[in-house]
Design a protein around this nucleic acid. Structure first.
Lengths: 193, 193
DNA sequence: GTCTATATAGTGATAGAC
DNA sequence: GTCTATCACTATATAGAC
């Protein structure tokens, strides 16, 4: 059946989200206008409000989707030996974050532009993710495979270090992502041994 | 001698910079208006333009001052044994960054709000700082004190890890800055050994 | 040095036609 | 579902009085 002319709810919605993601990452939430997002999509500003009640919800949805996908993808296997388990986390973290630089950037640059309620929700998801790594470290310490003075500190240190890859790595650069991942894993491995 | 009433160029200037630093760190450059900065200082918006030609210059000056102070303070001593030299860097980095969280936050959250020319200048200063750490690592490798596959990667990994302390450390928390520093140093030490 | 007033432009969001 | 038009604000920056 032919749709009403100009009716594209099934594809415009995702396009709005994609444009917002791109522009927020590039220019920052506060600096990007609804008009700029609309222009990127190819519609007028008023049309955006069919897909989001307001600009804040658009930001929150992007961040929540990202964190939810991250938590669903991480897939930790507690049966693995401690080192293999930690290595799997390192490889996963770098690959997952490398694949979606804009979402990663937004997820921790735009926290301050969330309302209090939305901020609390995103922070809870982030803590869930951190707890996943801390569990790996704690189990490894208990099994005698790792030597870590404080697993919470080590968790935060490792995540900061790994996420940092996104700020400088370029596929066209001197090293492949595999080589970079191998070297980060080596540093993490030593740091907890 | 009595000054002209309302004439305070010697103290208002620094107060404008301090207010901008605080507000930019809290709300983000794009989201903070000149009126908001003026209100924080206790003057009207127009008066700010006695101290800065425009908002962009205000941001750039804050970032440039921060990076310049960082480079002047780092004070690397190439005569030290490799481990002591690296340890001094780690201790310095954490202490310096802990002492000025707002400037640190701005210096890497607001990069995208700089004009191209200003961005290039700040990036050059940042590279200078990174090169300082890389020199320490390279010398240590040459002396046989460190084992590092790629000193550039190790540099970026270490800096990301150390700067991350600012995102979570609170003086009122479970651990003192000295304890935290000791544990980060231990992780860095192992990662390059 | 600071004020008030203002120019010029842009903002998020809504109403109603099609 | 998208458009045009618009409301009510807010923005940066400047001019000229004091």
């Amino acid at each position: 059946m032919a749709r009403t002319a100009g009716s594209h709810s099934d594809i415009t919605g995702p396009r709005v989200r994609a444009a917002a993601l791109r522009l927020f990452a590039r220019g920052g939430y506060a600096a990007v206008s609804m008009r700029a997002i609309a222009a990127e999509v190819g519609v007028q500003a008023g049309a955006l409000y069919t897909y989001t009640p307001d600009k804040q919800s658009l930001l929150f949805d992007l961040m929540e989707s990202h964190m939810t996908e991250l938590l669903e993808a991480v897939n930790d296997d507690a049966e693995l030996p401690a080192q293999a388990r930690l290595r799997a986390f390192v490889v996963f973290h770098i690959a997952f974050h490398h694949a979606r630089p804009d979402a990663v950037f937004i997820a921790y640059m735009e926290l301050r532009n969330l309302t209090d309620k939305n901020f609390a929700r995103i922070e809870a998801l982030r803590r869930d993710y951190e707890n996943g790594l801390e569990r790996i470290l704690r189990d490894g310490v208990a099994a005698g495979a790792f030597r870590v003075a404080d697993t919470k500190i080590a968790t935060l240190a490792i995540i900061a270090m790994l996420t940092g890859v996104n700020t400088w790595f370029r596929a066209a650069g001197r090293l492949s992502l595999e080589e970079v991942t191998a070297q980060y894993w080596e540093m993490v491995r030593r740091a907890v041994s």
